[in-house]
Design a protein around this nucleic acid. Structure first.
Lengths: 260, 260
DNA sequence: GCCACACGGTTCATTATCATCACCAACGGT
DNA sequence: ACCGTTGGTGATGATAATGAACCGTGTGGC
């Protein structure tokens, strides 16, 4: 269904950074003919998936997406189930907690809770995180279905966010092995130089990871001593979230997680 | 773009009442060939707009809709701007306050706030409301762009929800005139027999109404004496919401609204 | 004042794409 | 063992998407 694909692809070009697009601009970005782009946009607009500012003529996401999100969220609450758990986690650890779900070529942040203290890590809601540079990404892929992990790794860009970012597939494989052995992943300044992340995978019905719970800490605060306690808290919340979503964590993961 | 239309139409069959569908079921509901339905669903699934439970094989809305909603909401916050205002309104009036936006052939509820008291009207988040039977619908259409109002009225079904539902276009026109004169719309038991609604329009950039703020009260509690105070509160919140969204209310509306 | 370019939007013949129908295998109830 | 479901597949002809060229407008540079 190429046509549908292209139309949906159009939607994915609306991001936090660029939430509005002109016709020509969008057609260029999506590499779709202008006429076709217009036709697809008008179809999308008719259904409310995009709307057009009458003056600037720019297109933006429409109200239909709100409606669908609301339906999905009331019928199958993920965000609202995860949020209170994140808040507990943030309180317990005194650091920013966030949850991410695998969504295409990147991780989608679906919830954030920040602690009440003057210095803390800020994570944007609806921020897209790269797999290779974050603890969440490593934790997710380490326990994901192999074919999914492969596909994502093939499509990934491995751009270095800091000098410490892991940028080779081989090095990542090592990190995955570590993660599977430990039950959690740690990223030391690999996405933001001043941040240490600790993440544990969450699972769907299939028993494969499709996201992660993470704590992002100011690097200087995460000492080797404090780490186990954080890891333990993260793992327990990850298990709780998985169960709350009606799934059961992978047996391999549980085998190591039980130690905490 | 018929193909895109059909695919999007498929998405709209996922509702609060029926958030999950099997392939054949969906194809029947949408009146689309089964093979075509499947192909569209797989396209939608690839992009994360739907996902399939591996065991039951049923389809449900996917994470992509959450992502898009989040993007739209951070880039152009409507829900989060409206919510606190609704809560204030609910507190002030002691009744349930809700906001709805015009979305295709019906009103989409985008926010609800209920008062803290034992008896109150319950409005479902993400509930779709009919135009002809609700105060919100009347208020919206009374101040909407004429061509939009016409289009919606032509497509409407005018089904009677209670004995008091207005079911003719002519009668509706009268209600519109009243509403334009008063600045707010009132619906007495026309959607739910025990509820009285009072609504005022909210406007977009074009100066035409595209939604409404409403207070839904237990019918016996809304006396002719208490009505003006509620109307006044609703109108003021509607103006505040309109302005918060970067728009300016219609001049005609402001002319009457200023009296309150 | 003018040129040139980029914009959003429209047109129409050409052709690739999608809808259709018949078919499978698997499951569940009678 | 049957019947009616289900989810899913495959080949073919009709349909619907495509894209180059074309408007009319607005805007920045000169």
């Amino acid at each position: 269904m190429r046509t549908v694909d292209k139309a949906l692809n159009l939607l994915e070009h609306f991001t936090i950074e660029q939430p509005e697009h002109g016709l020509s601009e969008l057609s260029r970005m999506a590499d779709v003919d202008k006429a076709t782009t217009l036709r697809m946009l008008t179809s999308l607009a008719r259904r409310g998936f995009v709307e057009q500012h009458p003056e600037s003529k720019k297109y933006r996401l429409g109200k239909a997406v709100l409606k669908l999100a609301r339906i999905r969220e009331t019928a199958f609450p993920v965000t609202s189930i995860i949020q209170p758990m994140l808040e507990r986690l943030a309180k317990e650890t005194g650091e920013t907690a966030h949850a991410s779900l695998a969504s295409g070529a990147s991780l989608l942040t679906v919830g954030v809770a920040e602690p009440q203290r003057p210095t803390r890590v800020h994570v944007d809601a609806s921020e897209s995180l790269p797999y290779h540079a974050t603890a969440s990404g490593i934790a997710t892929l380490a326990f994901a279905a192999p074919e999914i992990a492969d596909k994502i790794l093939k499509a990934a860009d491995f751009s270095a966010h800091t000098p410490d970012t892991v940028t080779s597939a081989d090095a990542l494989s090592v990190r995955f092995a570590e993660t599977r052995a430990l039950g959690y992943a740690m990223a030391i300044g690999s996405y933001d130089a001043d941040v240490i992340g600790i993440a544990a995978p969450i699972f769907d019905w299939s028993g494969h990871a499709n996201g992660a719970i993470a704590v992002a800490s100011i690097a200087t605060r995460m000492t080797p001593e404090s780490r186990p306690a954080v890891a333990r808290a993260v793992i327990q919340v990850a298990i709780a979230v998985t169960r709350a979503m009606g799934a059961e964590p992978n047996a391999d993961f549980m085998a190591v997680a039980r130690r905490y």
